[in-house]
Simulated scan of single mutants.
Amino acid sequence: MVYFLIALIVFLIDQGTKYLIATRLTIGEQIPVIGDFFLITSHRNRGAAFGILQDQRWFFIVITTVVVIGIIWYLQKVKHQPNKMLPTALSLVLGGAIGNFLDRAISGEVVDFLQFNFGNYTFPIFNVADSCIVVGVALIILDSLMEIRREKQIAAAQQDHEEKV
């Protein structure tokens, strides 16, 4: 249950921040937070990451529905394992996916507002849901790498034991 609570918290923070941006700033309006490096910028995205696949609303709705169902199924499967990184990561991805899904389903676009500039390069504007999805995926990759390492250590220990016997 705690993992669905994490997903709910991610979803609520995401939707709350998007609501504040959508209702208090006009599109394109910027609030400097750390000079020109970090700004709150009201932006709308009708596509996916980096603005790709613009105006493919139904594609995103179908894909996200499948992904959310898959995450919930897999989360149910792994939630009782001693390793807590994977279900926590899945919770972050789930909360973020549902947050962006709701935006697309209701309005056909996602509210983005976190803007970072690195000199002349402006990183694509994103939101809390996007951040949680990226962190969740990074943790899933880290967990997979750690699992491979654990399996190699177990195999080496078993081989060592067999050689001694």
Rank of each mutant, 00 (worst) to 15 (best):
L75K: 07
I52E: 06
V33G: 09
D112A: 08
I140F: 03
A97Y: 12
Q15G: 04
I40A: 01
I34N: 00
F101D: 12
G28D: 11
V93P: 01
F11R: 02
V137L: 11
N120Y: 08
V66A: 15
E162W: 03
L102A: 10
T23Y: 11
I98Y: 05
N83S: 13
F116N: 02
S91W: 07
Q56G: 04
F60A: 10
G119L: 05
I27D: 08
A89Y: 01
K79Y: 09
L102V: 15
H161L: 12
Y74A: 04
R150H: 03
E29C: 06
E163G: 15
T26I: 13
R24H: 11
L12Q: 03
E162N: 12
P124S: 10
L94R: 00
V110R: 10
L12P: 03
F123Q: 04
L25N: 10
L8I: 14
G47L: 06
F59V: 15
R24S: 11
P82N: 14
I125Y: 06
Q115Y: 00
F37M: 10
Q81D: 11
I72Q: 07
L53H: 07
I9P: 03
R57N: 14
F4R: 09
A129Q: 06
Y121K: 03
N120M: 07
V111H: 07
T88D: 04
L39R: 15
L20Y: 14
F37R: 12
Y19N: 08
G51E: 12
K84T: 15
L90D: 02
V93W: 04
I72E: 09
I9C: 08
L145I: 14
K18F: 09
L92M: 10
T64D: 02
F38Y: 14
M85N: 00
Y19K: 14
K79P: 02
F113K: 09
I34S: 01
N83F: 06
A138T: 12
M146A: 03
